[in-house]
Amino acid sequence: MNLIDLGVVINTLWIGLIYSLMAIPLTISYKVTRVLNFAHTSLVTVGAYVAVILSLVYPDFFSNVFVALIAAFFAGAIVAILNHKFVYRKLMDKEASPVILMIASLGSWIFLKYLIYSVISIVSKVIKKDLYFAVPAFRYTLNLNFLGISNPSLTYSLILGISLIVLTFVVFYRTSFGKAMRAVSDNPQLAQISGISDESVMTLTWFLCGGLAAISGVFWAMFSYASPEFADSLILQVFAACVIGGISSIALTILGGFVIAGAENILMSILYNLIGLDLSFRPFLSFLTLLIVILVRPPAGAAGGLPYRLKFKRERKWT
């Protein structure tokens, strides 16, 4: 009996890449600004829709994927920066706790989400096209046959996604801006004392994170379609990937994205073929992965809790 086929594996790779791309900006923005940004999924949706709407309205210019990606990047970045300036910065000036910032991000999320809905419903009426399930009009100038995958959007996003992840690593660990970001994440006050303006570092961080989130949204739209709900329905998977990384390690977050994608696709396929598990149990597998991670390797440190945990004894690093 064939438990998994090649299609499932390729799907896992691709979906894992998307999850990682969505989870990385969440992790970075939490690390640097201490805001667990629930409005993140709205940024993803903004990116997807800006690219889709532009490609439908100005098809000659924005049908090129790269142009659409750049437009989406800036749209997501601007929304993230505005959100920071008007909500998080003001709350940080009042020395709000991370929990308050988290609740504020919920407020921004719900506001942005329905703002997107309103904009979509207006634009749908103006351009007389249903945008609730919008298929973008991107064209691919190259047709690469990469690893035997002939789907051009897959090839594109695999190459682009991997290079984006590499770029993030380079920015975060090799450039002086990345060092400043890590310094602010370690100790914002000491960073100020050393002559680093924490405000400009945070603004730039939101620029990058908002842009990356928007690009991941375009990737998703390229593969299937854009709807106002698609990013919100991925919230479980994206946050689970972040939790696997402890909301602190980028490498582990990427691993988390692939683990969640594997649980959803490969494990689901195996269970379906073995015991005929209903496909409606698919989200349970990601949630189960999340629970197992929390129970077996509970995240400690800034985002974690107090070290009262399971009954069995274990060595614990205090960081």
Binding site: R182, A183, Q192, I193, G195
Partner: peptide
């Protein structure tokens, strides 16, 4: 700090997750 005062606080005076070299490089930032 950029005008020319250096400050070494009593506690939490280094960036723990940066190497010694990176700690020093950061202070010369900008």
């Amino acid at each position: 700090a950029r005008l020319g005062i250096g400050y070494a606080p009593q506690i939490q005076n280094v960036f723990p997750n940066l190497t010694v070299e990176e700690n020093l490089e950061l202070s010369a930032f900008k």
